[in-house]
Amino acid sequence: MKRSLSAVVSACLLASALVAQTVNAEPARPANYPNRPISFVVSYPAGGGMDVTARTLAAQMERVTGYQFRVENRGGGGGIIGNTYMATQAKPDGYTVGILANPTLFLNILKQGAKFRKSDLEPIAGINFAPVAWFTRTDSKFGKMSFNQLIAYAKTHPGMVKVGVIPNASFDMATRIVEKQKHVKFNIVPFQGGKPSIVALLGGNVDVSAAYYSEVAQYIKAGTLKALAVADNSPAAQMPDAPTMKALHIKMASGTWGADRFAAVPKGTPRAVRNYLADLIHKTLEDKATQEAFDKVGINVSVKTMAQQQRSYNEGYVAVRDYLKSAGALKAGR
């Protein structure tokens, strides 16, 4: 009896020691950091999805950590200006964190020849991944079709199905991957931004639009629009009924064609500061109240640790490079 009690006690001690061990594994707060507000740099103007992501994260970080966070918009050039600033000019001191999005960043490097490399930035946390999806009006003739029926229709009517996309972005590229693998020809209509493309879809000027769920959530709930398919291999949480690429037998890289929103610091940020920041963001994103706050603004958090995000960062880079190579759009020397 006594022995078993002592065994229990010692087991408890051991367990608590183990817990203490894991607590100690959390990165310690670096000396004298942070002693002023930390900036979240967004490469897009105030008001867009990235801006909302950064502002929500900043507010939640302040609540969870007690430190101060600021959002700084450096818009222009479809993201390239802010991304270049983060990679080449921002001080690697832990006070400048980029809230960035892929594959835009990769396209800056691989297609537009931006003056930085993938290794100039170090991802520290994954915030969310919103896949591209194709939407159509429920009262149009495509509203009654499944994705495969749409493809069959496009086969017999080459160049007749008008698909609204944002050119040189995941919307455009995912649509072209489908075209190539299913051997069909759409009439791809370029729009500057997601909203104009949705307006054209609602107004009947295009038949299908490639967009993010958050841009059309209201219309899906109202029953005006419906999702045809998702450009990813696992079902999207907000539209579980839309078939995935895997289900449709289309080979497409996972977690690439959409908005992979993540936090990154410039290369050369002190290791201790980087790890501490990564841990703060991770802790904030894991918090239940944070996820509710993101849900409220229509963003579905999918947390990734620093290691996971770095892996998907490297895999995504290869997928985008392969696509551009096959499309003949890779910038020379990349």
């Binding site: 050039g77 537009q112 370029p190």
Partner: peptide, 23 residues
């Protein structure tokens, strides 16, 4: 700035700032 369809840089002379055109 950037061509709205092809994304080709027009009259930017390699400058990143010019890619979004003049504000």
């Amino acid at each position: 700035g950037l061509d709205p369809v092809t994304g080709a840089a027009r009259f930017t002379f390699g400058s990143v700032d010019l890619m979004s055109g003049f504000n």
